[in-house]
Design a protein around this nucleic acid. Structure first.
Length: 748
DNA sequence: CCCTGGCCGCTTTTT
DNA sequence: GCGGCCAGGG
């Protein structure tokens, strides 16, 4: 018996709940490691255990052991002791929590990691940096803001702010919006930033391209205005951190030395800029562990580059690759189907999911005659399942595109099935919430022009476009900020006429700014803002049904209270805004927990359900029309299909319809190619009866009794319920909307 | 400055 | 088929 073997015996016993591959990943501490984690292969468990292992043992490969000690260990092993009981004798060198950086994409994932680490490690876990790319960058940039010419209080613009600002730039450059739509301009600028192309580089690159050089003008102006507003957009957070590290090698070294062990989750979703950031943090010889699945790369459209994971071993030295292929989620037939579909992709690392559990049931493919019929079949199957002891929450309906949900919502409602649409409008993006947050942002950073413009006439103060542009003009001419101009507007002749209105607004704001400076508690400031601006009355007078909005406003107050109780006394406005700007996470419901989940396939990544319905498996829907003639895009769609299939634990229903109404016109789509890529022996095909041949009585959609179903629009924070509140946005809409009856007539 | 009617356009989404 | 957005009239 040598030490190496004995050590493994100890560790295998301690980590016996893991499989061999998982253990290998957990024990590989030093050097660069790529973990290719298939769907449902216990990825997060590996991440948690690996950090746990590092903090407990460090890198055991360098530990030496004398003969005498070895005999002691053998005895210890027989006495069921753990290797850590010999820590002093073996003199191993644990890694400190502050040496570890764990990066994820979403707050939800970061939170899960933090919670699971806390459960396993106790308070030590707090010292580990576990955060998203963006919050990590924001944290670093706040510290070094001045080196890049920002103040530490810089604002963070979300896509709505960004859009408004870009729109303004397009306007003031006198570019026809028809030639250059804001959306396309925004996405060009965003993807430039994803690949670290700043406005200067952009200008150089596209000198000879007419359209792109117009965009370059916008890019220039956008950057300029944003800088003057002391603000960064989401893409800036990453790009500016890279810039900071390039410009100040000392600062870079400081972080490289600090984060001795770096882990990145969902590496297939990284963009070029994020990849570069990781390179700068770890260097060529760092200890970098990335986890991901190239087959689940579905975010190319927002800058993700699969190549970062596919060519990981080219970018980093001496990479050890570990594949996690044992699946703990789905039955055999589901995995066979998923494997078969994904094997049609050419650019991928080979991987083959397997399970030790049985084949399970076949994959049911159902051919319906319309999208109504399709939704009806789903409803029937759910009711049938519930009759046989399943819960509503065992079911999920996953679709390619959000527009598919409407019909399904309708028929589920009609059948009295409780459901929720996950990921529609997010809490912090609601108009009333953005309005109030904009007030708070301006109080924190009066230079934030875009948000100042948003609120200056909300509630109405009859300060219109005219006045706004003359303020902007004056600001430009006198080289003053927008806020400075409105605070002293009586001094400017051009603003004389509107002076009274503007001054009453600016003095209001100045009162609020002072209140904040005096250290007023956050929730008191919030109340003061609402009261001073008369926002509730404004909502009451301008909305047909003000209640949902008022509920949201109250909910924001709750959120502040929770924030204050977490942070203790010193909870500052700046900290609050930081959290809010990076957290899209939102409401969860207090009451009913048993509901069917409806969401896009994208939103379902990482989740699992016993029974999964996949409506709209048709050419033109999925794969979507735009992708059909592009091989690369088809591969991305196929990965999406792979994600969809691997969500299911027990049963999959794939549905396609011989006719479907989209955008007001009826189309007849062929079944999706992804269906034919599944071996037919795994399929069980059923068909709706031809509706024309049905007796008239059978054609009436079943129950039209008015069932009260609450459909709450949830953000993606599903499962992690931290606050009680809910936002019943869509309660009963379906029955109040006229036209349903009409709709039924059409079917009959 | 606000309201309303007509017109366009329309995957996927986190931060 | 529907909603968001812009232009034009009140």
């Amino acid at each position: 018996m040598n030490f190496e073997c004995l050590k493994n015996e100890f560790l295998n016993r301690e980590f016996s709940e893991l499989n061999d591959r998982q253990r290998e990943a957990v024990f590989s501490v030093s050097g660069n490691l790529l973990i290719l984690a298939g769907a449902g292969s216990g990825k997060t468990t590996v991440i948690i255990n690996r950090i746990y292992f590092m903090l407990k043992y460090g890198d055991l490969s360098s530990v030496k052991c004398s003969d005498e000690l070895l005999r002691m260990l053998v005895r210890g092993f027989e006495d069921k002791k753990s290797l850590s009981d010999f820590s002093e004798a073996l003199n191993f060198d644990p890694i400190l929590p502050e040496d570890v950086l764990a990066i994820t994409f979403t707050n939800k994932a970061a939170k899960e990691i933090r919670e699971r680490l806390e459960a396993k490690l106790g308070e030590k876990a707090d010292r580990i940096w576990a955060s998203t790319f963006h919050s990590m960058c924001a944290k670093i940039l706040r510290i070094h803001a001045e080196s890049l010419g920002y103040s530490p209080r810089f604002a963070i613009y979300d896509s709505d702010d960004t859009k408004r600002l870009i729109k303004e730039c397009i306007k003031s450059l006198n570019i026809e919006e028809k030639i250059l739509p804001v959306k396309s301009c925004m996405s060009h600028i965003s993807s430039a930033k994803d690949s670290l192309l700043d406005s200067f580089g952009f200008k150089m690159k596209y000198e000879n391209d007419f359209k792109m050089s117009r965009i370059s003008q916008v890019y220039d102006m956008y950057e300029d205005k944003k800088k003057k507003s002391d603000a960064m957009d989401f893409d800036d957070l990453v790009m500016n951190t890279v810039k900071l590290f390039k410009k100040h090698p000392k600062i870079r070294r400081q972080y490289m030395e600090r984060f001795k062990y770096v882990m990145v989750d969902e590496y297939q979703d990284t963009s070029e800029s994020q990849h570069e950031l990781i390179k700068m943090l770890t260097g060529k010889n760092g200890n970098l562990c990335v986890v991901g699945d190239d087959d689940q790369s579905i975010y190319k459209f927002r800058g993700a580059d699969v190549d970062n994971i596919l060519s990981f071993d080219k970018y980093f030295k001496d990479v050890k690759v570990i594949r996690l292929e044992q699946n703990y989620r789905s039955s055999g037939n589901i995995l066979s189907a998923a494997n078969a579909v994904i094997s049609n992709n050419s650019s991928r690392k080979s991987k083959f999911l397997w399970t030790s559990s049985g084949d399970g049931c076949k994959i049911r493919v159902h051919v319906s005659y319309s999208e109504h019929d399709e939704a009806e079949i789903i409803s029937k199957e759910i009711l049938e399942g519930v009759k046989n002891g399943k819960k509503y929450s065992d079911f999920a309906v996953l679709y390619r595109s959000g527009i598919q949900s409407a019909v399904i919502e309708k028929l589920l409602t009609r059948n009295g099935i409780p459901f929720r649409v996950i990921g529609n409008v997010r809490f912090f993006e609601r108009k009333e919430i953005k309005d109030i947050l904009s007030y708070l942002s301006v109080i924190n950073n009066p230079n934030d022009e875009i948000r100042l413009r948003r609120i200056i006439n909300r509630p109405n103060r009859t300060i219109g476009d005219r006045t706004l542009s003359s303020i902007a003009e004056v600001a430009q001419k006198n080289n003053r900020s927008f806020f400075e101009v409105i605070s002293n507007c009586s001094k400017y002749r051009e603003l004389q006429r509107a002076s009274y209105k503007i001054t009453s607004f600016s003095s209001l704001m100045n009162v609020l700014i002072e209140a904040n400076k005096d250290g007023m508690a956050l929730h008191d400031l919030y109340d003061l803002v609402l009261e001073k601006i008369g926002y509730i009355d404004f909502i009451k007078s301008s909305e047909d049904d003000p209640n949902p909005r008022i509920e949201n406003i109250n909910e924001l107050r709750n959120y502040i209270l929770v924030f204050e109780s977490q942070r203790g006394d010193g909870a500052s406005l700046a900290e609050f805004l930081e959290e809010v700007s990076l957290v899209s996470d939102s409401a969860s419901s207090e009451d009913e927990q048993d509901f069917v989940s409806l969401m896009t396939i994208h939103a379902s990544k990482g989740l699992e359900f016993p029974v999964v319905f996949l409506p709209g498996f048709e050419e033109g829907i999925f794969p979507s029309q735009q992708c059909i003639y592009e091989p690369d895009s088809i591969e991305e769609e196929r990965r999406l299909a792979y994600v969809a299939l691997t969500r299911a634990k027990e049963k999959i229903f794939i549905l396609h319809s011989t006719s479907r109404m989209t955008y007001g016109t009826t189309s007849h789509n062929k079944p999706s190619r992804f269906i034919s890529e599944i071996p037919s022996n795994l399929l069980e095909i059923t068909k709706s009866k031809d509706w024309k041949k049905l007796a008239a009585s059978d054609r009436i959609p079943p129950s039209n009794k008015q069932v009260r179903v609450k459909s709450v629009v949830l953000a993606r924070s599903f499962g992690s319920i931290t606050r009680k509140p809910s936002f019943p946005v869509k309660t009963n809409v379906l029955f109040r909307r006229p036209g349903i009856e009409k709709e039924q007539d059409q079917i009959v």
